[in-house]
Design a protein around this nucleic acid. Structure first.
Length: 367
RNA sequence: CCAACGGGAGCCGGACGGUUAGGCAAAGGUCUGUAAAACCUUCGUAAGCAGGUUCAACUCCUGCCCGUUGGA
């Protein structure tokens, strides 16, 4: 489990795209996030179980956490370029149409937990519904209550399997409630009252404005801070640079996000000094393919100590991306993850020695 | 010298007597539990040259130029 603020890279298909476990280790990565739905479809959780689980399969020595498939209820459930929805939700569970071959699969909370035990990450997540945005209060409430029932079913199945398989996997329950203060409160109280090993906050960063996202999280902060068991709290799917400061400072212990790795593959790199702007969304990022970097001999970020910045300049990265060379993706992913993880390390340190507020202000220019 | 085919945007390229397919490249943007090495904008008023036919020519006709291939 994660006791200190931790940034969790996403490696949906049992790989953080383009990186080896050694790369991850050298970046300072302690844990990454795999996906139940994707690995169930391919190569199949049974196949991974034969190898002794994800650790053996991937050769990754650090921690792992698997998502339950709950996010795919949302992401596959929305129309994508008119391609149509791939899910159907009932009380029993969720029917998925595989994005790979269109075959129908049915996920229940029990099934998600069974798959996750087969995958055997250190930490797993209860099956939930990531409610779309915007949602009516009526729908959000119905989805919330269903997610709570699924949480209990997940918990029961999880305990049964931990005992049966003599495993010590940790289960996170997920707080939902969309953007409604009372629903978030209700969900926080319910999830916290149950015997989960960890608490997750879900249903944010699904297309809403940033201030709404921040507010939805802040609705539940008081509850998690009062948790007598002092359990770790994972914020699902959040991880822009300013989010690290906003949430790690308030008791969130971990968050995962695809953004640093996905941005890297699109040529965008994180840096502290790149943009003269107060817009947090673009303040810390630049695009290596910008014409201005064609002959730039500086590293991506002059302050960065990552492998990429210590060895290569922007002009080379610019070239690699223009030529769509694979090395570019790898070097850029190393940089962006290093940036997120080491910024998180700085936050850890600052929280311990009391300098957090000034560190945050120096980055964001606000409290 | 003869013959066939061809000549279009920075490049590739289909269609077609009337509204410039589509790519690539270029310049920007977007993304928060990865259907994502993805997606979205913008930008292209171009037709070897000279004439002709036509209300209208990238398209049809004539000549020339250039290229490829084959032949003498």
């Amino acid at each position: 489990m994660l006791k200190e603020p931790t940034f969790v890279p996403v490696g949906t298909q049992a790989t953080v795209k383009s990186l080896t476990p050694e790369d991850l280790e050298s970046i300072g990565c302690e844990i990454f996030f795999c996906n139940t739905y994707h690995l169930y479809l391919r190569p199949g959780d049974k196949a991974i179980k034969k190898f002794g689980g994800l650790h053996e399969f991937t050769r990754w020595k650090g921690q792992l956490i698997t998502d339950s498939g709950g996010f795919q209820v949302f992401s596959l459930g929305r129309d994508k370029n008119g391609a149509g929805k791939l899910t159907r939700i009932t009380e029993e569970g969720v029917e998925f149409k595989s994005h790979l071959d269109g075959a129908t699969h049915f996920f229940t909370p029990e099934k998600s937990i069974q798959i996750q035990h087969n995958l055997a990450a250190d930490n797993i997540i209860a099956f939930d519904e990531c409610t779309p945005y915007p949602a009516t209060k009526k729908y959000a409430l119905a989805a919330l209550n269903r997610t709570h029932r699924w949480a209990l079913r997940s918990l029961t199945e999880h305990k049964r399997l931990n005992k049966k398989l003599e495993q010590d996997i940790k289960l996170y329950g997920v707080i939902q409630g969309s953007y409604f203060k009372d629903l978030r409160a209700q969900s926080a109280e319910f999830i916290l009252s149950q015997d989960f090993d960890g608490i997750a906050i879900g249903g944010v960063s699904v297309g809403e404005p940033k201030d709404k996202m921040r507010q939805a999280v802040e609705y539940v902060i008081p509850y998690i801070q009062k948790d007598s068991k002092k359990r770790p709290v994972h914020l699902l799917g959040v991880g822009e640079v300013d989010d690290l400061f906003d949430f790690f400072g308030q008791g969130i212990t971990s968050m995962d996000c695809t953004l640093p790795t996905r941005m890297a593959r699109g040529g965008q790199f994180l840096n502290r000094t790149g943009n003269q702007t107060h817009d947090m969304r673009s303040k810390f990022k630049s695009q290596i393919m910008w014409a201005r970097f064609k002959e730039d001999q500086q590293p991506l970020d002059p302050h960065c100590q990552c492998y990429t910045c210590k060895n290569y300049d922007r002009a080379y990265l610019h070239h690699l991306f223009k030529a769509q060379e694979l090395l570019g993706y790898r070097l850029m992913t190393i940089h962006n993850l290093h940036f997120m993880i080491h910024t998180t390390f700085d936050i850890r340190k600052a929280l311990k020695d009391g300098s957090f507020e000034s560190l945050k202000y120096s980055w964001l220019g606000r409290k």
